[in-house]
Design a protein around this nucleic acid. Structure first.
Length: 275
DNA sequence: CGTTACCCCTGGAGGC
DNA sequence: TGCCTCCAGGGGTAAC
């Protein structure tokens, strides 16, 4: 479920509660997620204060005194992961794989499909972690604009939609937001990326940024003392124009939304509005 | 090098 | 009711 907005909203939901607290340890119920949870993690964490939580793409990065001899807890929610703050002693349910223990609260990871991961990076320079060092630009970073998108797409014959989802180029855009951004910009998901001109790259960059930002705002307004990102629609209250609306009328021209398959993923678009 | 195919895993939906 | 197939918001790796 989580794309960039969901991960960012999870981060914002945790920020008022966790930084400043000291970890008591951790409980690993399922060691084997996408990667194995480091066996020594609970002992390594114990006693370290959490400084802050940052996000890189769809990764949540917990700074456990990384500049004072600690390190970073790296967390990814995969396809079905969700985080929740629960009181200590709350019984774990099915698929509750990992707990991060603090004095008065527990951060609990649930992930039915186990595509998420929990990792540890020793020392301050988490951006040098192998999984992070290869990541592309943040779409909400000021440096991401039409010019950057234009440069990234040159001499690319691949269709624009799978390119948008390639985290080595741009992070955080998943299947839903790729479809919604392309609809908003009036660009066909099938169009060769390298054949989109300056002006339309500009338009697409604006669409990506505004849709992600609006989705974060809508999600953020609904977060209180827990972090929710469980199943359902994915784009929060933001109604999807095309995603999962196969056959339904396009909100702009009423033509039926079409569903095709690209690089193994479903793509939804309006064949009338998008070129 | 760029691009696609497959795989990790569980659960829900729909067909029979 | 059960069993089967297909599908799902991610992403690393191997193979073309």
């Amino acid at each position: 479920m989580p794309e960039l907005p969901e991960v960012e909203v999870s981060r914002q939901g945790l920020l008022p509660h966790l930084p400043g607290q000291r970890a008591r340890g951790a409980v690993v119920r399922t060691p084997r997620l996408r990667a194995e949870i480091p066996p020594g993690l609970p002992q390594r964490l114990a006693g370290l204060p959490l400084e802050t939580i940052v996000r890189r793409g769809k990764y949540l990065l917990f700074d456990f005194a990384s500049r004072q001899g600690g390190g970073w807890l790296i967390l990814h929610l995969g396809m079905s992961g969700s985080l929740r703050l629960v009181p200590p002693g709350t019984p774990a349910r099915k698929h509750d794989h990992f707990d991060l223990l603090f004095a008065h609260t527990v951060l609990r990871l649930r992930d039915p499909r186990r595509f998420g991961c929990v990792l540890w990076h020793e020392g301050p320079d988490v951006e040098r972690h192998p999984l992070l060092v290869v990541l592309g630009i943040e779409p909400l970073d000021a440096a991401f604009d039409g010019e950057r998108l234009y440069a990234l797409t040159r001499r690319r014959e691949t269709p624009i939609k799978p390119l948008l989802m390639d985290s080595h180029l741009i992070v955080g855009i998943g299947n839903i937001y790729a479809a919604e951004s392309l609809f908003d910009a009036g660009i066909s998901p099938l169009r060769a990326a390298g054949r989109i001109g300056h002006e339309r790259c500009q338009r697409l960059a604006v669409s990506i940024r505004s849709i992600l930002a609006r989705s974060i705002e809508l999600g953020g307004s609904s977060v209180r003392d827990y972090v929710h990102s469980d199943g359902g629609a994915g784009c929060f209250q933001l109604a999807c124009a095309v995603y999962d609306r196969s056959g339904a009328p396009c909100p702009r021209c009423a033509a039926p939304i079409r569903c095709i398959r690209q690089a193994g993923r479903s793509t939804f678009y309006c064949p009338c509005c998008q070129h």
